[in-house]
Design a binder for these strands. Structure first.
Lengths: 338, 338
DNA sequence: CAGCCACTCTGCAACGTTGCAATCATCGTG
DNA sequence: CACGATGATTGCAACGTTGCAGAGTGGCTG
């Protein structure tokens, strides 16, 4: 049987309330008393009962994190940083894998994760439209990762996808490439990210006065390697072969890289590649992968900052905040001309 | 204000207890009454308060998962499968990243994750000795991932590391390789896994009558790519260069792969490589990576099976179980002789 | 020395749920 | 028709904690 406040109180010969005051620093306690209580706590190995505390305070100490998948390198890295940032603030993260399913995401918005009550939610939506996000009725503080409706009711933490994609594409232009393709469009998803990156891609080509033949862009169903692999094979099979491709994720780029090699061509010699996300894999692939690196640490930090502000009500009912985290173009071997 | 049982009861014109009975199926309720209650629940958007339920029942519905890191592909994949398996059983997984620190792991064993109470724990120890695991005083059901003291008090779910490592090494022998190195020994860790794989590696060489010069084995501080990269560089710089290397993880192997390429050599032509874990990255690297593939789905499933048995007391106080999940040697391009 | 204040400490009640035991209605059976 | 069995429903208490209001103690001030 675990020790409770009552047991500690009996042993230290004080009231239950005083023990509680020591434990949670709710009211001043005389040094001598505090000492005695702490000793009793130690001896009985007392640990507060979270369920009771939560019931009383209406807080759970839990943060819900809903992401499409844990195993993907990008989300894995983000999840880890978020978990660390949450831990620093005394929260524990409860992970919910949406699998990118709209129904699952919708349920989360309405009910919270797994029927567990949480103090706040971090959602990385995949299939949900900005509209649905905006209409959400739940009152749990929510921070959305990724660009969405600016008029939405929730805080957003984003990177500037249009600018980043433009920079990536412009980099390829400056290498002297002229048939620059793109892999990663997702017209079937209401997910705005792919569209924003596509916009940056087109803007860069337009600025360079380059043609934008539709056969140089490929849509994908997921951002996984397999899709990048398939898409690149299609591009290489077409009559007009690209001499560079901007992939909307590093995983797509790694799949594409493999397809190029299988086709007997070289990277960056025949085809230059740029990815997006700066996952660790890209630093050890052959060749290493040029990529857009979002500042993930800052994304995590600002996300929790937003959440904390909402939970502790520091923002009152201010309108939703839009935080843009910085990014950087990391030029590595897949796009350097040796 | 969220609706509670009382509100629903008032609206459905029944007692609080009856609503509770409908919600938790604790006692039979007449169809008509149930209907009325469900309607009220719907209208008021009632959701049970978990904190109160937990307080009353002494259960939390939470499972702690403690792993060294979330971002690593292997643990990410395992975590995802565990989360899914837990969800099927109505549990929510709470992830605690130990960072592979002994102190952190020790604290977990004593206190549980983040001072949150959980119904059960899954621990993938990194730095903890079998001895410390065995001396654990906490009574929370615990399942340990990875081989440890067979006399321990906790259930274990493992793969047969010795056999797997022997198979991997024997495969290299059968390719005709004679200077077969190993990357991944971790003598500084009490973690038994590396030692077991090393044992299998040595056994295979001994069985083939091959020499085992110590300069062909490399220790590492972590299982990351960077360490594999460094270790392989050292092996290639030595006077006796290996013609094959068994890496104790796929990440090590991918780092090693890069080092081989940087050295102007080819895989598998000059050096054949075999990894361990079957992470997704290895299926898309160039060349694709031969590896030992543990049956991760089964690891997750059996782990939760064990945990459920403990939590629901089906096993009573039976001695600790040792479950061995199957594995498989997947031969891919990094070790085929084209 | 009365009066006040600051500092500690305390008891009570409540958070929302469920286990327990009791009550009430209904039905089948001897 | 009486009685027990069965089924449906209920009230009370308790889980371990903290907010609140208040009591006790001692010192300082006027």
């Amino acid at each position: 049987m675990a020790a409770k406040l009552k047991d500690v109180a009996a042993r230290a010969d004080v009231s239950v309330r005083t023990v509680s005051n020591v434990v949670s620093n709710a009211a001043p306690v005389a040094p001598a008393t505090r000492e005695r209580v702490l000793k009793a706590i130690e001896e009985l190995r007392y640990r507060p009962n979270l369920a009771a505390r939560n019931l009383r305070q209406g807080r759970t100490g839990l943060i819900g994190l809903a992401i499409p998948e844990v195993r993907s390198p990008y989300f894995g890295e983000i999840a880890e940083l978020l978990i660390d940032a949450a831990q620093e603030r005394g929260w524990t993260v409860l992970i919910d894998r949406t699998g990118g399913l709209a129904a699952h995401e919708r349920r989360l918005l309405a009910d919270g994760p797994d029927a567990h009550s949480v103090d706040g939610m971090i959602l990385s939506p995949w299939a949900l439209t900005a509209d649905e996000l905006g209409r959400r009725s739940a009152t749990t503080p929510l921070v959305v990762l990724g660009e969405r409706d600016p008029k939405g009711t929730a805080d957003h933490v984003v990177v500037d996808n249009v600018t980043a994609a433009r920079e990536a594409t412009t980099h390829l232009v400056q290498l002297g490439r002229r048939r620059i393709g793109a892999i990663g469009l997702q017209p079937q998803l209401s997910n705005g990210t792919a569209e924003l990156r596509a916009r940056g891609y087109r803007a860069a080509l337009a600025a360079a006065g380059l043609a934008r033949p539709p056969e140089l862009t490929r849509t994908v169903s997921t951002l996984h390697r397999a899709e990048g692999h398939r898409a690149m094979r299609e591009l290489l099979a077409a009559p007009v072969r690209p001499d560079a491709v901007f992939c909307f994720s590093d995983e797509l780029a790694l799949g594409a890289l493999r397809a190029v090699h299988e086709h007997g061509l070289t990277v960056p010699g025949d085809v230059a590649l740029v990815g997006f996300d700066d996952i660790e894999d890209g630093r050890y692939s052959t060749p290493t992968l040029t990529t857009i690196a979002p500042d993930k640490a800052q994304i995590a930090e600002r996300t929790l900052q937003c959440l904390a502000d909402r939970i502790y009500g520091r923002l009152g009912h201010l309108p939703a905040r839009h935080v843009t985290a910085p990014h950087e173009l990391l030029i590595r071997d897949s796009s350097s001309s040796p």
